[in-house]
Design a protein around this nucleic acid. Structure first.
Lengths: 338, 338
DNA sequence: ATGAAAGCGCTAACAT
DNA sequence: ATGTTAGCGCTTTCAT
């Protein structure tokens, strides 16, 4: 396997009959090397297939031309972010390196601190943290957080408008004529989940409908938990005519439970989700949901990071992107208008 | 931003009143450090938030406990591979680092050689190359290729059974009663595309149907090209009753063209694709297609790599995973059986 | 124009 | 048990 040991700058220097310093100068287009020598060295580099070691170079230099993206795992959200990051980095001359904590102790809160510390200052010129569990991190390079669990903080942050998204979801149900609207909430320790619930409450209050706490169930973003919540809601003396679930997975679970109980969605029960994951379009009926511009979030995070790295301009450090209501078949006016 | 400079082992040593060597020993659980000193050092590490630099450590050590995955870009195929790789790395203690050539000159054939050379020998203990354009790479670490453009080579390879997949697609159409079956082929420079075409030819011959070259159009995996090909096929004096497209994107394009011409799919024309991308399930009618187990390919690649790294067992270096026919609404018996 | 030497942060002999 | 030293591959003064 390792028939070919790594070719080092030393070997290039020896083969070209010059010093390592000279080779380094050629590599980095520094002044002070004659044309003839440059050509000679270039030829040897080509012949030996030499490529400088990213590691050695990083150790010596401050600048590496590498941007790091730190994710807890490769799941739909982070993968979509990566697409956006790739969009934004195209043509910038920077390389993108993604670190996943997947193999290590991911469950440990603070994975991002460990990883960030290991790569910042060496190896990367800046980093994007995807859904970090904490934001009180310090690093020797600029960092940007995407949708941090704890909400905005002192580090630049990209998130989407969960508050208005939640508001819009409920508004849509109100417009259809619903008055008893339940909510299955997300994990209360996550800022995004809390904002969605706030949107729900705000929209009801704006419509002059008092919030009925018995219509609010905690779902923790987990389908199984949401299924139980749905059963309880439907068993209520006065069950809701619509449910707003804090994410699509829970919304789909709610539809499944309702359908199993012989109810028709949307005729007997309307359901709205959040996220717009691919699954939500593939079921019958399609799930009405609030879309987050995840790819755009990745793009913007990278742009913000590059700005900081290149111009060192603080700019607007907190960007909130708009969410968008996607209406599909899971919502309709309630059976009996009043 | 860099209020906090990177904490180095030196600073830890000074703060603890010991030498760097001692700190290093504590970090790596080496013998020869008293309990008291160990505790003292640990405390300082905790207090200063020290984390060893991945770069410096890599430069010094042979082993880094990091696996590299090299992709040309973040697109659906490579992202699915990443999920599989993450599956396989969980609990192994290895970290996953993904390098994307996206920001650089991707179009340049041989991106993988450049990247591999830069990270191998330092920084990673092994690497997975995703759809590399070349496989005559040498590296100082074990490498595994997934679905290389050029087919199998001397390096361990994971691919899927394109030959049998193509065969199965056509077999399905034959079973439905089709006899005039056209094919829109992929990029002829890619081994996977050639294998799919071979499967098509084999299946026809096995059924005793001579291959009609006028029914074979080159589509290059590009929807627009496939659309033109479909038009030509449908304009034939004796048009085909079914089309096998070498990928889903082209299959969907074929359906679109046929529908625009007033034909009904599958009544007037059956279409089979290849890949089973999410889109193929979301259209009406759903596209019958051949599924590649992409995630599984990522998983197996990582397993194969770890085997090589850990036990150095060559094992079976070429793994071909089975493809699977997914029947949806785009195929049916031809209108007039003969 | 070229090279010798120092040092980036770390580990591993080899002293002591 | 602890420290001293050399060196991983590279860049960058500073001499020559």
């Amino acid at each position: 396997m390792d028939a070919h040991r790594r070719v080092t700058i030393r070997e290039v220097a020896e083969a070209a009959g010059v010093s390592v310093a000279t080779v380094s100068k050629v590599l980095n287009d520094r002044y002070g090397v004659s044309g003839a020598t440059t050509e000679k060295v270039r030829a040897v580099i080509e012949e030996l297939g030499y490529e400088s070691s990213l590691v050695a170079r990083s150790l010596r230099n401050t600048k590496t031309n590498v941007i790091g993206v730190l994710v807890a795992d490769f799941e739909p959200f982070s993968l979509e972010v990566l697409k956006g990051a790739a969009d934004a980095i195209r043509g910038t001359g920077y390389e993108l390196v993604v670190y996943s904590a997947a193999g290590q102790a991911v469950e440990h809160v603070g994975w991002e601190r460990r990883h960030l510390t290991r790569v910042s200052g060496t190896l990367v010129d800046g980093a994007v943290l995807v859904t970090p569990t904490m934001t009180d991190v310090t690093a020797s390079v600029p960092i940007v957080a995407i949708d941090p669990h704890t909400g905005r903080s002192h580090i630049p942050t990209i998130d989407s408008d969960n508050l208005r998204g939640g508001h819009r979801a409920v508004e849509h149900l109100l417009e259809l004529g619903h008055r008893r609207i339940a909510m299955i909430t997300g994990r209360p320790d996550l800022e995004s989940a809390r904002a969605r619930e706030r949107g729900y409450r705000d929209a009801l209050e704006a419509a002059g409908i008092p919030v009925d706490e018995s219509l609010i169930e905690q779902g923790d973003f987990i389908p199984a938990t949401a299924a139980g919540a749905t059963r309880r809601l439907l068993a209520l003396p006065k069950p809701p005519s619509a449910i707003f679930a804090a994410n699509d997975a829970m919304g789909l679970a709610a539809i499944e439970v309702a359908t199993k109980q012989g109810l028709h969605v949307p005729e007997d029960l309307s359901v709205v989700g959040f996220d717009n994951v691919p699954d939500s379009a593939m079921t019958a009926p399609g799930l009405t949901t609030v879309e987050q511009p995840i790819r755009e979030m990745g793009r913007r995070a990278l742009e913000l990071l590059l700005q900081q790295i290149q111009h060192d301009v603080p700019r607007d450090p907190h960007v909130t992107l708009a969410t968008r209501l996607v209406v599909r078949g899971s919502t309709a006016p309630p059976r009996q208008e009043r």
